[in-house]
Nucleic acid binder design. Structure first.
Lengths: 189, 189
DNA sequence: TTTAATTTAGACTATTTAGTCTAGTTGAAG
DNA sequence: CTTCAACTAGACTAAATAGTCTAAATTAAA
C-alpha cells in the first residue's frame, strides 16, 4: 500500500496547523515538510483554505470521534463508559501537550470564517450526540439535563487541555479531570 | 484627561488580536483601526511582538483579574463568592461571544513562543492563586485538593466559553456552568 | 521666544505570502 | 510500444508583510 502524495500533504498540514495554527502555517512550510513541489500541492487542493478544510474533515474529525467510540463493556454502567473515555484522553500525548486540535482551530477560525465555523461545528455536534447517546442509557438521575451535561463534559475536557503546553502533563490533566469524574459519579441513580 | 496615542494603539490591538489572533492581525489593520501613521506606532513599540506583549500585560491581565476581584459579602460563604464570580462572567458579552482573550492567545502563541508562554502563564498563576485564596477560607471539605479544584474551575469556564461564537449565548454558558456550580455546592461542609 | 525632545508623517525596502502557469515526467490502459 | 491522463517541477507574479528611515511638526522646558 503506497503513501499517496495527498495523504502526505494532509498529514503534514494536520501537524503544522495543529501546532502553528492556520495563519501561522505557510504554504512554504508545508512544501518543506512534505518535500514536494508547489505544483503537486495545487494539483490536489485549489487553495490553502480548501486544504485545511480537508484536514478538518479527514484528519481532525476521525481523531475526535475515536475518543467517544468506546465499546460498552458488558454489564457496565454507561456512565463508566463515559468516564473511561475521558480518562483515555490522557493517553494521547499530543492532546495533553497541545490541546484539542478541533478546539484550537475553532478558536482561531470560527470568529473570522463561516466555512470553518460550519465544518467544525458539525463535528462538535456529532461528538455531542455521541456523548448523549452514551449518557442516555446510563444510570444518571432523570432530572439532570443531558444536553448541557454533554456540553459540560466537552468544555471541561477541552478547557483542561487548553492550558500552557509548557506546564501540561498527564498528571495535571488527570488531577483536574478528577473533579469532573467525581461529579459524574455523584449523578448516578 | 487625554486619550494618548499609546492607549489608542493598545485598545485597537487588544480588539483586533482578540478577534483575529496574533497572526491574523497585520500592522496595516492596526494603523487603519487607530488612524495613525506607521512612525507613531514604531515610536511606541519596537516590534509587533512587543506591542502584543504590552497588550497582554496592560489590557488582558486587568480584565482577567477583575473577575476574581469580588468583594466578599459579609457572612457569605466564600464558595458562594466564587459562584458569584463564575456567574458574573455571563454578563460580559464579549466573553460569551468570543471566549477568554487570554485563553485564545495562549492557544495560539504558547506552543510557538516562549515569551508569550511566560507572560500568559504569569497571569494564569495569579488567577489561580486568587481563586485559591477564596476557596481556602470557604466551607469546602478539607479532603478536597484545592489546587486542582482551582484549575478545574478555570478550565471549565474557559472551555465553556471556547465553543463556537456563532452558537454562543449567555443562556448556553449558564446551562453548562450550572453543572460546575452544582459540583461546587456539593463540596460544602 | 528659543531650544531641545518628543511625536507624527509616510515613502521606502526586503522578505514572505498565496497562488499561477507552462513544460516535463511518469505510469497505467489499450 | 503507444497514447493519454495524472502528476511533478519550479520559475514567476502580484499583493501583503514587518520593519526602517529621514524629515517635518508639535510640544515642553529654559
Amino acid at each position: 500500500m503506497k503513501y499517496s502524495t495527498r495523504d502526505k500533504i494532509l498529514d503534514a498540514v494536520y501537524k503544522l496547523v495543529y501546532i502553528n495554527g492556520y495563519n501561522g502555517t505557510s504554504i512554504d512550510m508545508i512544501l518543506k515538510e512534505c518535500a514536494i513541489p508547489k505544483g503537486s500541492l495545487y494539483h490536489y487542493f485549489k487553495s490553502k483554505k480548501e486544504m485545511v478544510l480537508a484536514v478538518v474533515k479527514e484528519r481532525i474529525a476521525p481523531r475526535m470521534y475515536e475518543f467517544y467510540d468506546l465499546k460498552k463493556v458488558k454489564e457496565e454502567d454507561s456512565i463508566d463508559t463515559m468516564i473511561r473515555a475521558i480518562l483515555k484522553v490522557s493517553k494521547k500525548e499530543e492532546l495533553v501537550k497541545f490541546g484539542c486540535p478541533l478546539n484550537r482551530l475553532n478558536q482561531e477560525m470560527s470568529p473570522v470564517d463561516d466555512d470553518f465555523d460550519k465544518a467544525i461545528n458539525l463535528i462538535y455536534e456529532r461528538m455531542k450526540s455521541d456523548i448523549l447517546s452514551v449518557l442516555k442509557d446510563s444510570s444518571i438521575k432523570p432530572d439532570v439535563d443531558m444536553d448541557s451535561l454533554a456540553q459540560f463534559i466537552i468544555a471541561t475536557v477541552w478547557g483542561s487541555l487548553s492550558l500552557s503546553p509548557k506546564h501540561s502533563s498527564k498528571k495535571r490533566y488527570l488531577n483536574i479531570i478528577n473533579h469532573l469524574i467525581n461529579y459524574l459519579k455523584s449523578l448516578k441513580h
